[in-house]
Amino acid sequence: MKEILNGKNKLILSIPLFFLAACSTNKYAATNKVYKEQAKVFGNTLKEMPPLSQNVEMIAPDQQFFIGSVNFGIRKPNFVIIHHTAQTSTDQTIKTFTLKSTQTSAHYVVGRDGKVVHMVNDYLRANHAGVAKWGNETDLNSCSLGIELDNNGDEPYSDAQINSLISLLTTLKKKYNIPVQGFIGHSDIAPKRKIDPNKFPWKKLAEQGFGLWYDDILQIPPPEFDATVALRIIGYDISNMPAAIIAFKRHFVQTDISPVLTLSDNMILFNLYRKYM
Rank of each mutant, 00 (worst) to 15 (best):
D113P: 09
K192T: 14
S89F: 01
V34H: 11
P201R: 07
Y236W: 11
K133Y: 15
H186P: 02
K174S: 15
V120M: 12
K275R: 12
H128A: 04
N141W: 03
E224H: 04
C23M: 09
T262P: 07
L46G: 13
I162V: 08
A86T: 10
F18S: 08
N9D: 14
Q208A: 08
A160I: 05
L269S: 03
F97W: 06
A132C: 12
V56T: 07
K76A: 15
I233Y: 10
G7N: 14
Y236D: 06
N163D: 08
D216L: 11
N163K: 11
D113K: 13
Q38P: 09
A126F: 13
I268K: 07
V260K: 15
P61V: 07
F72H: 15
W202S: 00
I147D: 00
M1H: 10
E3R: 10
P191A: 11
S101Q: 13
K275Y: 14
L168H: 09
E48L: 11
N26S: 05
S69Y: 04
Y28D: 00
P197K: 03
P259V: 04
A243S: 08
K10D: 09
D196L: 09
V117H: 02
T25E: 12
M119Y: 08
K204H: 10
W202P: 04
Q38W: 10
L46Q: 15
S164H: 13
T93C: 01
N141A: 02
Y214L: 04
K204N: 10
P51V: 01
I246N: 02
T25N: 14
F79S: 00
V180F: 11
S24R: 09
R193Q: 06
G153D: 00
Q38N: 14
P156Q: 07
Y108G: 01
S24I: 08
D196R: 05
K47H: 10
I195W: 03
I189H: 04
A227T: 08
Y236M: 05
M58V: 13
D91C: 02
L231H: 02
F252N: 02
I234H: 07
A132H: 05
I81R: 03
N151K: 03
Y108D: 00
T31C: 14
S164F: 03
S264G: 01
N26C: 01
I82N: 01
L13E: 13
R274M: 01
D122L: 00
M119D: 12
P51M: 04
I217K: 15
N6Q: 05
G7H: 05
I162A: 08
E148S: 07
C23Q: 10
K36F: 11
F66D: 07
L212M: 14
V260N: 06
A132I: 10
S264W: 00
H128W: 05
L13K: 14
N266C: 05
S89P: 14
T171V: 02
I233D: 06
L263S: 01
P50H: 02
N240K: 13
M277Q: 11
E148V: 04
K8P: 10
D265Y: 08
V80Q: 03
Y123T: 04
D216I: 06
A39W: 05
R125C: 11
K36D: 11
M267P: 08
D113W: 10
L172E: 06
F210C: 10
